[in-house]
């Protein structure tokens, strides 16, 4: 059997610190071998630079050029996922299905389906405001998904 530390390290990502901003470290994640042949390689970089960049709270005092181990906090990621995708999804379903239940005929020549769709999208936009305020409040309280676990290769002598 493998030991738990080896298992844990398999669950982490390695990255290099490229910038420091007050108490935050900007890190560039090392590319995985599986990425080389992936057709969507250039699409899955949120900032469009072709590099996977993350801004993480610098709790271990890392410096520019340090190679660091990044830990993903599963519970927080799950919570974020449910809020980010779950809330608009439930809103959309509720908007569409409830409108369909109460409105049976077209209004002013507009078909019921288009009214249902409009209501669904309206609830999605409203849920967007909810997510906006929720994430602002959580950011103030130091809620994060990734954290720096240890420095693997330090540039400091």
């Amino acid at each position: 059997m493998k030991n738990s530390d080896q298992y844990f390290k398999n669950d982490c990502e390695t990255a290099t610190v490229v910038d420091l901003q007050e108490n935050w470290a900007v890190v560039e994640l090392d590319e995985k071998g599986a990425c080389h042949n992936c057709g969507a390689k250039m699409l899955c970089r949120p900032n469009g630079s072709g590099k996977r960049i993350l801004r993480i709270s610098n709790t271990i005092n890392a410096n520019i050029g340090d190679q660091v181990l990044i830990e993903q906090i599963g519970a927080n990621q799950l919570k974020l996922t449910l809020i980010q995708y779950g809330l608009p999804l439930i809103g959309f379903l509720a908007g569409v299905l409830l409108t369909g239940r109460f409105i049976k005929d077209s209004i002013l020549g507009v078909p019921v389906e288009i009214i249902q769709m409009f209501c669904g999208i309206l609830v999605v936009i409203l849920s967007g405001f909810g997510i906006y305020f929720w994430s602002k409040r959580k950011a103030k309280r130091g809620f994060y998904v990734f954290r720096l676990r240890e420095i693997l290769n330090s540039t400091r002598k």
């Binding site: 969507a40 699409l43 899955c44 949120p46 900032n47 993350l54 980010q84 967007g128 997510i131 906006y132």
Partner: peptide, 23 residues
Amino acid sequence: MFIKKVSRPLYDTLGIFLPLITT
């Protein structure tokens, strides 16, 4: 774009999954 506007930290963390859905 909606997620990016609504919450930048959420987009940085989970936005990676969206472009993969296109394919």
